[in-house]
Amino acid sequence: MASTSNSLPKVVAVTGSGFKATNILQRLDRNRSIHKVISLYYKTPKLRLSRTKYIHLDLTEELADAKLAEILKKEKVDTLIHTAFPITPPRNLSFAHELISVGSMYVCNAASAAKVKKLILTSTTDVYGPFADNPNYLTEKHPARGFRKNSFIKDKSDAENGFLRFARKHPKTIVTILRPCTTMGPTVDSFKTAYYNLPVIPTVMGYDPLMQFVHEDDLFRAVESAVYEDWPGIYNIVGQGVLPLSKVIELTGKYRIPLSMIGLKAFVQTLWYLDILPAPASYIDFLKYICVATGDKAELEMGFVAKYTTKEAFLSFIGAERLRRVHLVEA
């Protein structure tokens, strides 16, 4: 599992155009030891980096894998970072399935055709799922059970399994799966940040689960170390410490309304269809049960320790949110 210095990447491609892809591109663009950085975007990016080559790619269209393989071969890509996932569960579930599950399959196919040396996938600790019988600290060995109740997480699990299958088939390729917990930070825009941005925050009466956050900088540091060094396998990327949901909401300075469990599912689902709540009813369990992972493996093997604790990560998000409200930061 030792890192080797002779495998420094020369051409790195990043799929996706969300905050993860944008930030990773910025960091890689700065590094002169990388010859070329390629952005495989779907949404037109707001800002163009000087050394980065931008190529449009739609992973949901037919023969996307052939197109991607062609690009990878032509540009001689040796490291591929796959972040092209919707962060927020989309209302169109079939589109989500196409993009996450089938899209990852396309990426794997293209990578095997183009003989990419390294594949990196950014997943999430949500794949473990919120369960009352979870241990307080989930390790990478724990089965990912999140798909049982949630079709959006099921797609993510599918993507992970696809990558793991790929790793088994191609033992020479280094496949790294990073599982960050809920990412917080000034540039993060996801359904979880949308939840904390609601004017009053709904919770489930009688439940106060422990929450865990990781700062975006820490996540991108972990991705960088996975790019420059070889770390095959699954790694949880988490901030230290936990906070109960009630204290998290106290930090936002907003009120919370504890909702009764009776009829909550239908209520939340309706509000989600009406575009008032940011997540469907299958996410209620995240407000009830624990889903906290341990970053011990990343610390022992990668030497990765998050610089921001859970509280600091959340406070940095809150700070940016305050500035955004008075239009000091661009939305």
């Binding site: 307080n136 600290y137 422990l210 901030g239 230290q240 410490g241 936990v242 906070l243 109960p244 204290k247 604790t309 859970t310 509280k311």
Partner: peptide, 13 residues
């Protein structure tokens, strides 16, 4: 040793 002063790592307040 709690990383956040609210609760310790097993949720004790």
């Amino acid at each position: 040793n709690p990383a956040t002063e609210e609760v310790d790592e097993f949720g004790r307040d």
